[in-house]
């Protein structure tokens, strides 16, 4: 198991966003979390990366208990993630973004000043090639179109050293051609041994991509299984149609 979520509960005021939610994410697979709007998918991601404090439950990454760890330490331990809304650094270039993601030593001032500069040019090129991003490296984040921002965001998450990749709606608002492209990128990553957890609103997108699917409704896992099994699950259809 790469990631294990045990009985996680989170309340916002009186609203129960996650209700004893348990998931197990296998290695080297693409796992999808689907569910209607407000079913708790993004909250689950934020609880895993500890941007939101959970009320109860435990979380293990590669057998290590990360329940009480701080958000940046969880990232250091190997969780790489994106947000539904693309988060980029407004005043930095594409190269800056990827170097920040790649480098683990830039927090050290002295090393940063006197240490030898690592040459990441090739790794950056490889990652950008993989996602099919061809803008000049010194382009500023604000000069990019929505689709390009989405791709850069994905590239950053891939570049950051990780054990698991968690993508929150990687194709939301993206044109059909790019949707297909992103699907291919994710398949390539899986082939290379990545573990990928994606949140997706659209059932059709994950059906021929995911190896396994969890369905969330009202903060509970109401069904899980292979895409084929999920497609015909009565409870799942109800949750979607009853929206």
């Amino acid at each position: 198991m790469m990631l294990k979520i045990k009985q996680v509960t989170k309340n916002f005021g009186g609203v129960r966003a996650l209700d004893k939610c348990s998931l197990e994410i296998e290695k080297e697979k693409i796992i999808a979390i689907i569910g209607p709007n407000g079913s708790g998918k993004s909250t689950l991601f934020n609880v895993i990366s500890n941007l939101i404090k959970k009320d109860s439950g435990r979380i293990y990454l590669d057998k290590e208990d990360i329940t009480e760890k701080e958000d940046f330490n969880i990232a250091k331990l190997g969780i790489s993630r994106t947000f539904q809304e693309v988060r980029l650094f407004r005043n930095l270039t594409i190269k800056d973004h990827l170097e920040i993601a790649l480098l683990e030593s830039d927090e050290k001032l002295i090393r940063s000043l006197f240490g030898k500069r690592e040459d990441n040019e090739k790794r950056i090129k490889d990652i950008l090639n993989l996602v099919g991003f061809d803008k000049p490296l010194d382009t500023h984040a604000t000069e990019l179109s929505y689709g390009q921002r989405k791709l850069l965001d994905l590239a950053i998450a891939i570049a950051k050293p990780h054990k698991i990749l968690m993508l929150d709606e990687p194709v939301a608002g993206v044109n059909p051609k790019l949707r297909k492209g992103i699907k291919e990128i994710l398949r390539k990553l899986r082939k290379k041994g990545d573990t990928i957890l994606i949140i997706e609103h659209d059932m059709n997108f994950v059906m021929d991509l995911a190896d396994y699917v969890f369905v969330l409704d009202y903060g509970k896992v109401i069904a899980h299984g292979t895409p084929r099994k999920i497609q015909n699950n009565k409870k799942v259809l109800e949750a979607y149609l009853g929206e």
């Binding site: 940046f72 990232a75 993601a101 950053i156």
Partner: peptide, 11 residues
């Protein structure tokens, strides 16, 4: 520019 965005990159 984005403190949360940087924290999830492990800084």
């Amino acid at each position: 520019d984005d403190e949360i965005g940087l924290r999830v990159l492990g800084k």
